[in-house]
Design a protein around this nucleic acid. Structure first.
Lengths: 373, 373
DNA sequence: CTGAAAGCGCTTACAG
DNA sequence: CTGAAAGCGCTTACAG
């Protein structure tokens, strides 16, 4: 099914009208579903130049309405969709967005990814995932190569790698639009999707205070994580506001892992008197607290209230089910995608994009109750 | 920094030697780290045609060793890396692999993805993820568009969507190389990474028999999932081999979810006498069993042994920790990637690629023990 | 073993 | 409002 003459055949002079060429080169009017259509095929079918088809594809206002309607109809009928790589080459950009993360929390990553992907698809972008190791020597080089090689239109970064100032600096130099998902205003708001962890942690303090707890402990995340600092400060300030305190012997630093939660809980539950409530830095840490309580025979919630953070699937699967802060991860993925694309689209007119914030809220389940004796 | 003459300047005749052009067009010998290099820059620096550079990039044997070494050195020195979109356009393929899944098990997807990604990177490919909804009307159309639009070199499918025969048929018609991750030999072995669930389930039966259980129940996955059937048959056959049985009142069909596990366990624990052991279809289901046991005050493992399948992070976080079958998900991701790329590379010489199989093994933890009374 | 020409499918820059 | 030419950075097909 020759769409163009074999090489030996003499070419028509360039000035041959589109009509003539259309007549000579188009063997049949039935749409050819077997072969992939190109912009040339559409141009031929519509009796216009490929430039005009290009204008329609890219929604240029400089096309007569009648022409646009006709071309659009043909595009739909034959199921044409422009070749992304060819567009990428000509546009010098890829319509690809990178997702950079080193977060070990699988549900977090998957949910975020799917939220972002849903939004990106609608806007004609694809997502390329890039897990990384922020402790590797080649960390920055690796990300830089990823971005320049793929000519990424932009990237979204998840915590904790999103908190890295050197990385953000590099992206700025590369002029690569980016969104940082983060727990504090570490950058211009237009580059952020921010989770208000400080306020959320205050909500936990209020919950515990209302239940009547007075000996309250916390297992914070690693101090190198901004979210850990935000949650700690929000929590201890809110306790102070209610005349409660977070004494040093009731504060332990974990690493947002199950194992660290178990180890820290072991220390906290050795205090005498021991705390009646533990606010764990995240759900994984809370699961570690459950583990230690189980081994020591401490009953939750009768003898110990436990609060998590994330509302990962784990929270509802633990017994008793875990009271925790729900983060709308999927929504955050969607928001990050939309915000990034808005930035990319408006690169020239630099619209002031407002801050995008999200406030996690408490989901009360079985693991919190009034203090025992 | 003009790399080429402005449009008004008369072009040199095509027959000008490479040497001449190199001299005229190359303002300095210092590598220009600011600007992205192209194959033309390398050709100029090496005093060869870009075709020869292309040969070096693509490891053609038809380059003199001295020439190759010189070009390779230059490529390394200036940090040249070929433009993926330009290659994609010229090669008519993308060096992109799609990961198609509808698996709600986040750790499974993430681990698989990272295993695959690690291998693909080494081989010069990128991974584009494509979650989908196998119940959507546009399911097949959507995947088809994804593949043709992106000109994917191949796809990997995760269960349960990997079990869909219509999808596999479509991929064959599209001549899109694929790998199905699956629990049974539903296709030519060269298209599979297979988990031997039948054998694994037999291992569970053996474990329970050795512990002395005689009233054994199972919560199978949905019968529309091949893995559910494999696990059921492997388990019940192995019980039969040991003179034990899986009576109908001790078999329930769940849906591999936490909720279904809880609901099915409620039914099974209402039987009189009740089972002393439950083999849950997967870890999520097992967590549901924990939930029901917790609510009914049934002690695990003293009064009830529970076995899961997957060894997801959840398994070690439950209290008591869950005895389960470990699937090497990450390895499976790597294997799928390697096998797919081998297929892509050898498309012409059609090498018979052997079956790739993986056998999950039992990880004994706290949730299994001898039967109570 | 090496190269000049044409092409992949799209866009930009220029003209009308 | 529309189009012809040149170009994005690479490869294939052909020649030598």
């Amino acid at each position: 099914m020759p769409k163009k003459p074999a090489t030996k055949i003499v070419r028509l002079p360039a000035k041959a009208s589109a009509e003539t060429r259309a007549h000579q080169l188009q063997p049949a009017l039935v749409p050819d579903l077997e072969r992939k259509h190109t912009i040339n095929d559409i141009a031929r079918l519509a009796n216009v130049s490929k430039k005009t088809v290009s204008r329609v594809i890219n929604e240029s206002p400089f096309v007569r309405e009648e022409t646009r309607a006709r071309i659009t109809e043909i595009i739909k009928r034959v199921g044409f969709t422009p070749d992304p790589q060819a567009r990428a080459l000509a546009f010098r950009r890829s319509f690809l967005i990178g997702l950079i993360y080193d977060n070990p929390n699988a549900p977090y990553v998957i949910n975020f990814q799917e939220g972002a992907l849903g939004a990106l698809r609608r806007m004609g972008y694809e997502l390329v995932v890039h897990p990384c190791d922020r402790h590797s020597d080649e960390f920055l080089t690796d990300i830089r190569r990823f971005i320049t090689r793929q000519k990424l239109d932009g990237v979204v970064m998840l915590p904790p790698v999103s908190e890295n100032p050197t990385l953000a600096e590099m992206l700025r130099k590369l002029e690569c639009p980016y969104i940082r998902v983060i727990a504090a205003a570490l950058d211009d708001p237009k580059n952020l999707v921010m989770s208000m962890d400080r306020q959320s942690a205050a909500e936990v303090a209020e919950h515990l205070a209302k239940l009547g707890h007075r000996r309250i402990a916390m297992i914070m995340g690693p101090h190198t994580f901004r979210s850990a600092i935000e949650r700690l400060e929000g929590f201890s300030n809110a306790l102070a506001d209610r005349g409660l305190s977070l004494p040093p012997e009731f504060l332990a630093e974990g690493s947002y892992t199950f194992e660290s939660g178990a180890a820290c809980a072991d220390i906290l539950l050795s205090r005498s008197p021991r705390p009646t409530a533990i606010f764990a830095g995240n759900d994984e840490t809370a699961a570690g607290v459950y583990r230690t309580a189980y081994l020591r025979g401490v009953k939750i919630p009768d003898e110990l209230t436990v609060i998590g953070f994330d509302d990962s699937p784990l929270a509802s699967r633990l017994c008793p089910s875990l009271t925790t802060m729900r983060q709308p991860i999927r929504d955050m993925g969607r928001m990050a995608a939309e915000k990034l694309v808005a930035k990319i689209a408006g690169l020239s007119d630099v619209p002031a994009i407002a801050a995008t914030t999200v406030v996690p809220h408490l989901v009360v389940r079985e693991s919190s109750g009034p203090p025992g004796k």
